[in-house]
Amino acid sequence: MHLPLLLLFGLVAAASARGQTLSAHYVPLDAAPFERPDPDAPFWAETEPVAAPLMGQAITTPSKFSPEAPLIEARAVHNGAWIAFRLEWADDTKNERVNKDEYTDGAALALPLAPKGATSPFMGGPGAPMEILHWKAVWQRDVEHGYADVTDTHPNAAIAQYHGSPTSGDHPLREVMASEEARLASPAIRLGNPVSQITRTVPAEQLAAVGFTGSLTTQKQQDIRAWGRHADGKWAVVLARPLNTGDPQDKVLEPGMEHELNFAVWNGAAGDVGARKSYSMLVPFKLEAAP
């Protein structure tokens, strides 16, 4: 019922982003800043940002009728082998836990696999897959402090004994999960669900999608690096990967090429999760030629 309105809004948003092209500047750097991204690395200040308007997501349910932040500011650099994107948007609160009533902040960018102009911005469509790079604050906290345990969400929990624990009382998650008995009581961990990985070194994942139909799937091959930083009511997140990963689910990027991409952010404090997100229309994007 809100579709016409939203589509109209979508067109307006698209129009205002159209004038600007996100240019991935060539930087003569080695792989290190891409493999260990830092949103505060000095070279970012030299790049030209693009501000893409964000809108609510009302194409599918569950929906979000107005965006959490008006704009997302995007920058990009490449070194001929790697590319990195830096996304910055306003978010007053840092939400880096998930619980019954807590959701994580997050950010994503989507690259159509087809050539420019052939893919819907709504996470692609049948026969028009998208590659999605997705960073999550909760995963970054896992990387920084270890996978969140019961005592992280419930500091005062008093536990007699967990299933599979060798002895009574609470034990750290990793110790408990060493036992097959305990893993049986945590099926998502035992079965390797991508959101339940208790050892994680990268706070982001690469996914594949063919539209808003529940098609989102974690890719088998992961080539992504990412890091975020929250300060002064803003998140700044860098997502990086090799230009050509050799993975057929990833877009092959080449210096000099023109393409397009779009962005999405999730504000945990607003209950954003899944399709409840703020996102942009497709933004034109080009990679500077390497010298």
């Binding site: 569950p62 998930v98 619980n99 019954k100 909760v138 969140a148 345990d149 019961v150 969400t153 998650l173 945590s186 099926p187 998502a188 961990i189 669900n193 991508p194 959101v195 339940s196 989102l216 999760v273 899944g274």
Partner: peptide
């Protein structure tokens, strides 16, 4: 993926979110 849409939807509140497995 732990979106918890089912938790909100089940009228009997018989789907539960596990904060450790996150699903």
């Amino acid at each position: 993926r732990g979106y918890q849409a089912c938790v909100a939807a089940c009228p009997y509140k018989k789907v539960f979110f596990n904060a450790v497995t996150r699903v």
